[in-house]
Lab assay of single mutants.
Amino acid sequence: TEEYEYTDEQQAREAAREWREKGYTVTIEEHNGRWRVKTG
C-alpha cells in the first residue's frame, strides 16, 4: 500500500483515476482538509 497526500481534491481525484486505470485498488479519504489517496 502506498499513500499520497494532496491539498487539492481535484488533484487527488485525478491521481486516483490514473491509478485505477493501471489496475490498482484506490481509496480516497479526506482528512483535516487534505486528501489521501491510498493504492493497494
Rank of each mutant, 00 (worst) to 15 (best):
Y24Q: 04
R13K: 11
T39S: 06
Q11R: 09
Y24V: 06
E3N: 08
E9G: 04
T25E: 11
R17H: 08
T39L: 15
E30H: 12
R17N: 10
T27I: 12
E14W: 05
Q10E: 13
R13G: 04
E18M: 14
N32L: 07
G40C: 14
E21A: 10
K22D: 03
E29I: 12
T7W: 12
E5F: 15
R34N: 07
T1I: 14
V26D: 00
N32W: 04
V37W: 02
A15G: 04
Q10D: 12
R34L: 12
G33L: 03
R17G: 05
E2M: 15
W19Y: 08
R36W: 14
E14H: 08
K38D: 04
A15T: 05
W35G: 00
Q10M: 12
E30G: 06
T7M: 13
E30M: 12
V37P: 00
E2D: 12
Y4W: 13
V26A: 08
I28S: 01
E29M: 09
E9H: 06
T25P: 06
H31Y: 12
Y4A: 06
E29G: 04
I28M: 06
Q11P: 03
V26W: 01
T39I: 15
E14I: 10
R20G: 06
R13N: 09
Q11W: 05
G33F: 03
A16D: 01
E9R: 05
Q10H: 12
R34F: 13
E21D: 12
E14F: 05
Q11S: 14
T39E: 04
A12G: 02
A12F: 01
G33A: 03
G40T: 15
K22G: 04
R36Q: 08
H31N: 09
K38W: 08
T1L: 13
R17I: 07
E5P: 11
G33C: 05
E5V: 11
K38F: 10
G33S: 04
Y24K: 04
Q10F: 12
T27D: 06
E14C: 10
Q11T: 13
G23V: 01
T25Q: 11
A16V: 07
D8G: 04
R20M: 13
N32K: 07
Y6T: 03
R13Y: 11
E29D: 07
Y6H: 03
W19T: 01
G23P: 00
Q10G: 10
K22H: 05
Y24D: 02
N32D: 11
Y4N: 06
E9P: 06
G33R: 03
W35H: 01
I28G: 00
Y4P: 04
E14K: 12
A15L: 06
W19H: 03
E2Y: 14
E9A: 07
V37F: 03
E29T: 13
Q11I: 08
V26Q: 00
E14V: 09
A15S: 07
E2G: 14
E3K: 06
T7G: 11
Y4S: 06
T27A: 07
V37A: 02
T39K: 14
E5D: 09
E5G: 05
H31A: 09
E3D: 10
W35N: 00
G40Y: 15
E2W: 15
E14R: 11
T39M: 14
R17E: 10
E2T: 14
Y24W: 08
K22F: 04
E29R: 07
Q10R: 12
A12M: 03
V26F: 02
K38V: 14
R36N: 05
R36F: 15
Y24N: 03
K38N: 08
E29Q: 08
T1Y: 15
R36I: 15
G40R: 15
V37T: 02
R17Q: 11
I28A: 02
G33M: 03
T1H: 13
K38G: 04
T1E: 13
E18L: 14
E3P: 07
R36H: 11
H31E: 10
W35L: 01
V26T: 05
E21F: 06
W35F: 06
E3G: 09
K38T: 14
E2S: 13
T1F: 14
I28R: 01
G23D: 02
E30A: 08
N32A: 06
V26Y: 03
R34G: 07
T25H: 13
R13W: 09
T39D: 03
T27F: 09
I28T: 03
T25W: 13
K38P: 01
A15R: 07
W19C: 04
A15Y: 04
G23F: 02
D8F: 05
R20K: 09
R13Q: 12
H31I: 14
I28Q: 01
K22M: 09
I28D: 00
Y24S: 03
R13V: 10
R17V: 06
Q10P: 05
T25K: 10
Y24M: 06
W35Q: 00
E30F: 15
A15D: 03
I28F: 04
A12T: 02
H31Q: 09
E30I: 09
I28W: 03
H31V: 14
W19I: 04
T25F: 13
G23L: 02
T39G: 05
E30V: 10
T27P: 00
N32T: 04
W35E: 00
Q10T: 11
E21H: 06
A16N: 01
Y6Q: 01
E14D: 12
T39A: 11
Y6R: 01
D8R: 04
W19L: 14
T27Y: 10
G23K: 02
E3A: 10
A16Q: 03
N32C: 08
Y4F: 13
A16W: 05
D8W: 04
E14L: 09
R34Y: 11
E14G: 05
A12D: 00
Q10L: 12
E14T: 10
R20E: 13
T27N: 06
E18W: 14
I28E: 02
A15H: 07
E30T: 07
E21V: 06
T25D: 10
Y24F: 12
K22S: 05
Y6L: 02
Y24R: 04
E18C: 10
N32E: 10
Q10W: 13
E18Q: 14
H31T: 09
W35T: 00
K22Y: 04
T39H: 10
E29A: 07
E14Y: 05
N32S: 06
T7F: 12
T39V: 15
I28K: 01
T39Y: 12
H31F: 13
Q10S: 11
T7N: 13
Y6P: 01
E18I: 15
G23R: 02
T25A: 09
A16S: 04
R20L: 12
R36M: 13
K38E: 05
H31W: 11
K22C: 06
G40E: 14
A12C: 05
I28P: 01
T1G: 13
Q11E: 14
N32P: 02
R34T: 10
G33D: 04
V37Q: 00
E14M: 09
R36P: 00
K38L: 12
R20Q: 12
E9Q: 07
Q11H: 08
E9L: 13
A16T: 03
E18K: 14
R34M: 13
E14Q: 12
G23H: 03
E29L: 09
T25L: 11
K22P: 00
T27Q: 09
E29S: 11
R13T: 07
E5T: 10
W35Y: 06
R20T: 10
Y6I: 02
G40P: 05
D8H: 06
Y6W: 05
Y4H: 09
V26M: 02
R13D: 05
R13P: 00
R36K: 13
E21P: 01
D8K: 04
D8Y: 06
E18H: 14
A15I: 08
V26H: 01
E14N: 11
E3Y: 15
E30Q: 11
T27G: 04
Y4R: 08
E2R: 14
I28H: 01
W19N: 02
E3Q: 10
E2V: 14
E2K: 14
W35M: 01
W35D: 00
W35S: 00
E9N: 03
R17A: 11
V26L: 02
D8L: 05
I28V: 12
T27R: 06
N32I: 03
E21R: 10
Y24A: 04
W19R: 03
E5L: 11
V26N: 01
A15K: 11
E9T: 02
A15N: 04
G33N: 05
Q11N: 07
T1D: 11
A12P: 00
T25N: 11
